[in-house]
Write a protein that binds this DNA or RNA. Structure first.
Lengths: 198, 198, 198, 198
DNA sequence: GATGAATGAGGGTTCATTCAT
DNA sequence: GATGAATGAACCCTCATTCAT
């Protein structure tokens, strides 16, 4: 009788183990040993479920991206106008709480740096950014149309990239300059966007 | 006859060697060997001039910070109003050219991630950010005063942090999403700031 | 109702799995996982049927030796004189076809190298060689007696060893130098032997 | 003042360390640790002089091939006829003494097996065999011409391959069946060759 | 000042073997 | 009989750092 597969559960544990280890030590220094310890597993088991350490990182990126999407969609359902959805997007991205959220943000900052040198990471990072960019471009065009102005596609794309950059930069500052007040970012970014589309 | 000391020159070469190696491979993977090769020096010489690899990184941070200051001051001398200086600050930060500038930006992105885990790096990173923040706070208050509005210190600090975050985020995007148009950032950020202080 | 035992069948599958994996990756790199995959079985099942990996190798040697004996006996039944049997021996050993034969030859070459370091393998390898040597010695003495010459035992043994060495060497060359013509070996070896005993 | 390079000397020591470790444990089990111990060096130093373990193996193959060439050329200078050179070739290949020669033969047997699975090893192995084959083909044609017979190129090539196979097989037997008398091989092979070209 | 050989700890990964199911 | 998850030791390799020259 075969043992029931718990592979998906184990993979999840390992991915979270990497996130935790990365937030504390960076990707290179997040050793398989430290990931295993963080996940409460034996080191050998890591490589039973993932062929390479890079594969775990890729899985973590997917996980974080999905979680971010979920957070946005949760807020977006309550939004009626495109403008409300834009604001919901910014809130979802920047309303960062405590605990594992902080780890997730730290991990994402480190992922951004690894994207500089690791092609697989860079490609997936670009995909994630592109997806957000597309979402934002559409929302921006709709929202500007709602308020009676006309935002062309090129401008919308530039504005979307600016929004994304501001968010990524806020992650960086939130992670490394902890005494900076944390809630300002969403407010200011929202004002900037509203001003830009009106 | 004593050989004339070329220590400062050598240190500079080593620091630039690290910058180059980091832009390509990250900090952890920038081995002393690879730094030496990038600098055209022998591996042993590195540790004659720097006790540890971390010391080189600290020196690189100082170097990059100084270079940024110089770039700003060059533009700021031509500025007459505080508002002009604000715009000059943003231009200096975001007008990124080719070649070693690109390496510098990539290195700075990686430094930001290393600041998450390395206390020495984090402390210096925070110092650099704080210095920029102070500069910006002053300029923002002066500029708002120039246009007849009143920006209180707390607001000014939040706005300064937002500006810095946007710039750091732009570095991240410019480094890892190369097809994103590059010149939008300064323009949009300047508009946002002008709107915020008026 | 008890499940009918299929142990022998499973052991056979595993042994052939090792042969296939070895031909491709060598003995050390033929992992239990790869053997299982080649045999279409689960890794855990391997150790249900064999205590250690070495045991599978021993079983493979027995299998290959038996197959070789069968091939010889099939040809030898048609032979009338000792000389004919000698020729049949050489034909059986060197008439190597395609497919699993090629794998078997490759596996045997690798077994020969493992015999250098693994005592159990070496002992069995020596047994196999000794058995062939005895067969050949007898055939050589009979055949020389048939043609009216007298081959003493020492000479016969030396000649037998030479025959065996030539065959083993042909396996090596056939496996690693694939463009060498393949059919020459039997012909030349037969001529050499006929000349030596006449 | 730079330390004088001893790289070539160290490389030689490492190569001989691998030969010794391989003769005892095979290539896969010849760990870097065991190579280092056999060479009297620290493990880390191995990788300072060779990028990979495979590189050491390749260097060993070159070394063994060169040594074999030297042995032949030493004997060949005393030979006057092509036939004498042929005999010298066989003597050089099969007159295997004690000590490091035995290790060399064992190592070569193992290399032959590694050639089955490692492309780089196989390619070099084929080159070595091809070189010997070319030498033999020329000698065989000249020698047959000396005795007034005519050996065509195809036949010569087949005969050369047979000679090489017999020699490789003798290495195998000499290494793994130590009680087989050792000096027979050259004598019988020479007779076979002389018979074949006359 | 400068070289590059040398060290040894620690990294990711592979793997035979065990075992709960 | 059969499964596949789990373990831990050992592997090759990388590397910051040291040091004799």
């Amino acid at each position: 009788m075969a043992r029931p597969s718990n592979t998906e559960h184990r993979r999840q544990e390992i991915v979270l183990g990497l996130m935790s280890a990365m937030a504390e030590r960076g990707y290179e220094k997040a050793s398989i040993q430290s990931i295993a310890k963080a996940a409460g597993l034996s080191p050998g088991l890591i490589h039973y479920h993932f062929k390479t350490k890079l594969e775990i990182l890729i899985a973590l990126m997917t996980e974080l991206s999905d979680k971010a999407d979920e957070r946005y969609e949760l807020l977006a359902t309550k939004a009626e106008s495109a403008e409300d959805k834009l604001m919901a997007y910014i809130d979802a991205a920047l309303a960062l709480g405590e605990g594992s959220d902080q780890q997730a943000v730290a991990a994402w900052v480190i992922i951004g740096a690894e994207a500089v040198r690791l092609e697989d990471v860079r490609n997936l990072y670009q995909d994630v950014i592109a997806k957000h960019s597309n979402t934002l471009v559409e929302l921006l065009i709709q929202a500007s149309s709602e308020v009676g102005t006309k935002l062309n596609k090129k401008k919308a794309k530039e504005l979307a990239t600016f929004i994304i950059a501001s968010i990524q930069g806020s992650y960086q500052i939130a992670t490394t300059v902890p005494d900076a007040s944390k809630d300002y970012a969403a407010k200011i970014l929202k004002e900037s966007v509203l001003n830009a589309i009106s």
